[in-house]
Design a protein around this nucleic acid. Structure first.
Lengths: 180, 180
DNA sequence: GTCTATATCAAGATAGAC
DNA sequence: GTCTATCTTGATATAGAC
């Protein structure tokens, strides 16, 4: 079913994201996820012994995917001010829709058990601290970061739809705000 | 219990927001909301005959509150370019935490029944169109709008915490991006 | 490692008393 | 207009076969 699933766990996580986005986080039941993933509920619960475990794994994959994308983009950039923030923007530019899909984990956690967002919060603050230390004024760095996150989140909720071209234009504008 | 509740419906809506924020949207059950509001489940269901009705009312109050705040701020601004966008930023500056609390309705809708977000989407797009027509470049208007929304949403999720002073600084920065 | 069957519980919603 | 039942459904999780 899902294309990029190398093992049962990834297949199930892909299914969970799809279900959360399409039907709302409250409809991300074990039944719906297991059916979508093509396994039984028992099969799902073998890999994720509870729903909390499943949602926690969604959050962890979210964090890992963002970190991989940032690392990839950072390597392409010369050292300099705001390198981290630029790498983040380019990750957003290039890795969509992967980053958008996995963000469903946040919605699922916010709905199911807010305490599962703790890891995501830690990661968020660690990135934010890096951006604030990048040499820009705190308010400029914050505004650029929040604009990118705003787009990402409102896309997830279906409020905004950006074509690749418009996403490119927005990123150009944000890079401009960093440099000028 | 709730201070600013002029009738039973508002009391219930206040309770629903509080429950959604504190326990996650999935824990915003009719039991939890009615208990928090100090009424029985039957009492709640007299005012909102189903959970869909309750969530829809949360969304409607969100829209109404934003519109009232925008109208109030718009009246204080001289005519000129980007007046609408400025009024929106000032509403965000002055009406928090009221606007933040009611945004819980969006989370509740996203979790419970995404189709209930339709009205919110319409309102969002109508505002967005106004901002795009304000004379700024589309990318600049978009970035300013998304930055404010990003802050609002990540505050709602507990990812960011802004003091009134920091919120003032951010709004100053955004106004600067509009004017410069 | 994946399945079926089932136990347990909580949710949304209804009915009717007051 | 608000209450206390109660009905019905569907969700998480367990047990044990294959």
């Amino acid at each position: 079913m899902t294309q990029h699933s190398r093992n049962a766990k990834d297949t199930i996580l892909d299914a969970a994201e799809a279900v959360a986005i399409e039907g709302g986080a409250a409809h991300m039941t074990l039944d719906a996820v297991s059916h979508r993933a093509g396994v039984s509920k028992g099969g799902l619960l073998y890999h994720f012994p509870s729903k909390d475990h499943l949602v926690a794994a969604m959050i962890q994959r979210l964090i890992d995917t963002i970190e991989e994308a940032r690392t990839r983009e950072r390597a392409k950039l010369p050292p300099g001010p705001a390198r981290e923030l630029k790498a983040y923007l380019l990750a957003w530019l290039h890795e969509d829709p992967k980053l958008r899909k996995i963000a469903a984990g946040l919605l699922a956690a916010a709905a199911h058990n807010p305490s599962l967002m703790a890891d995501a919060k830690k990661h968020f603050h660690s990135m934010y601290d890096q951006f604030l230390a990048g040499g820009l004024s705190p308010e400029r760095a914050s505004v650029v970061f929040m604009a990118a996150e705003g787009f990402r989140f409102f896309e997830l909720m279906g409020m905004v739809e950006l074509t690749p071209e418009r996403r490119q234009i927005v990123v150009d504008e944000l890079i401009g705000l960093i440099e000028g």
